[in-house]
Nucleic acid binder design. Sequence first.
DNA 1: CAGTATCCTTTACGATACTG
DNA 2: CAGTATCGTAAAGGATACTG
Lengths: 121, 121
Amino acid sequence: MIPIGVESKAQALDCPVRTILSNVTGKWRIIVIVALEDEPKRFGALKRCIGDVTQSVLTENLRHLERDGYITRSVDPGPPVAVSYALTPLGRDLLEMMKPLIIWSNEKQDTVRAARAAYDG
Amino acid sequence: MIPIGVESKAQALDCPVRTILSNVTGKWRIIVIVALEDEPKRFGALKRCIGDVTQSVLTENLRHLERDGYITRSVDPGPPVAVSYALTPLGRDLLEMMKPLIIWSNEKQDTVRAARAAYDG
DNA sequence: CAGTATCCTTTACGATACTG
DNA sequence: CAGTATCGTAAAGGATACTG
């Protein structure tokens, strides 16, 4: 059985459900991880690849992911300077854990849409 | 290869990564799903079981989950009225998909904490 | 018991301009 | 190229009071 109930803030920090959620929560974290699947990418390439993320938000998310140990940041001082981001083993591990969920989600999209339409009546 | 880049809003709606994220994102969705794992629960029981969620927020999340087809809501008009929430097959399916991720997250908590401490250091 | 209704704070996200 | 700095908006969450 998975513990979820808490009576204190300290307890919440130890809760695995809450921990994993704080890792995948947010619109961009997992998208960046997925974007780095095949090869390390530079900032500009990452931004173009994702498409609809702004510079400031992308930077912010990259910092979070680096801080938590999911990606690395390598600077090649040019000029021009070139910064490259890559998955760590931990990051690749998270990606592999997410894949079944992503595939499942893709399969069930229509089911959810139907449920929503029925509910909205 | 998982598609993530988009050039339009319509494309973003079809993106599996973004879809699954919108299902599990938020501090409470998955916690409620997990709380319903073993048996249907009434509103009050659910609230006590989770511990640190407010009534209004719990209600809001229950409505979302019901709308998307992950849980059902059954009313037994009393008095006093008793409302029971239960997982649908879809909800149970999502729970099973999340479990490996939850277990993994639990195992890696210390790794992330260490990475964070090193980064902040 | 199981909610609604308000109001407030925090966080995420977004747009734009500027810089070594 | 890869950011930083500012500013503004929007959504999530939280606190509290009230109700059939």
